[in-house]
Design a protein around this nucleic acid. Structure first.
Lengths: 154, 154
DNA sequence: ATTACTGCAAAGCATTTGCAAATGC
DNA sequence: GCATTTGCAAATGCTTTGCAGTAAT
């Protein structure tokens, strides 16, 4: 149901995300800038997961250039806004994943080809919820990663 | 059921761990050294989680001094040997956790005080196993982390 | 005797930061 | 006009590496 192969992010989705980001920025009394719009756009356009440095390199070329430092600063802002989330699983570097308008899901990581496979399981969530209750722990979020070999690589 | 408050690692456990590490080293045709024994010992003595740099600092003082570089190299070896595992959750830096003779468990991380709370849930494992079967994914390991607020901090 | 291991200090590298210039409000 | 943001480049801090000396087999 995606729009077109080159950009998996529809214009409408981008618009909505930008509206949300803008409102977040204003709520904090900060400034809505073109630079921030560009970073958000490029981050969402990457689709799947990406690294800060990767995005920084991408954005440092072309007409809409944004400096490395600013990419890092804006990414942190996007995380605070809840539009992007940090993933720390594999290498030393933080990976990011857009969360805007995406349903909750867990990951399987193929140790052979590196693929991120998304899946979800209501029953697991429910058990996690129970475990928190049992331990008297107030959950804000959780993360489940399964390492192994994907179907293709077996 | 722990031995004494100052070191939660019994002498016997240390001995067993060292035997296992030694056998791993020999199997690879590498060399069994005093330095490696010291790093293993200090790593296990830390109990809970620790960071490489933390251990390096700890070990760089006192009579049994081991250099920073060697700590990192030995830690990598311990991971390969399966005596210690890497945890990448919180900050940019890798955390380590001894796995020798410790039962599998998941973590809850308190976002207020930073505590690592360990818990386990057979039912969750079983569902994870089912999910892998469904997705035709061959699991080698998994990791579940729940973020939130612990009982004390609520 | 060989070959691996260690310590040291230097190099790497993603990320952060300080500061002057640019920009939003 | 004033405060925030940006770009640039330099600094940071953990981690890795090269090399000469040391130790294990």
């Amino acid at each position: 149901m995606t729009a077109d192969p080159t950009s998996s992010v529809t214009q409408t989705l981008l618009q909505e995300a930008w509206d949300e980001f803008r409102s977040f920025i204003k709520r904090r009394g900060d400034r809505v800038t073109e630079t921030r719009r560009i970073v958000l756009e490029r981050a969402l356009q990457r689709g799947g997961h990406f690294q800060a440095d990767e995005l920084a390199r991408d954005v440092s070329r072309g007409s809409d250039r944004v400096s490395r430092g600013t990419v890092y600063r804006t990414l942190a802002l996007l995380v605070e806004a809840g539009l992007v989330r940090e993933i720390r699983d594999r290498d030393t570097h933080v990976h990011y994943e857009p969360v805007f308008n995406r349903p909750h899901h867990e990951h399987m990581i193929c140790e052979t080809c590196g693929a991120f496979i998304e899946f979800d399981d209501e029953a697991i969530h429910s058990l996690i919820h129970d475990a928190c209750k049992r331990m008297e722990f107030a959950e804000t979020s959780h993360r489940l990663v399964i390492f192994g070999t994907c179907k293709k690589c077996q």
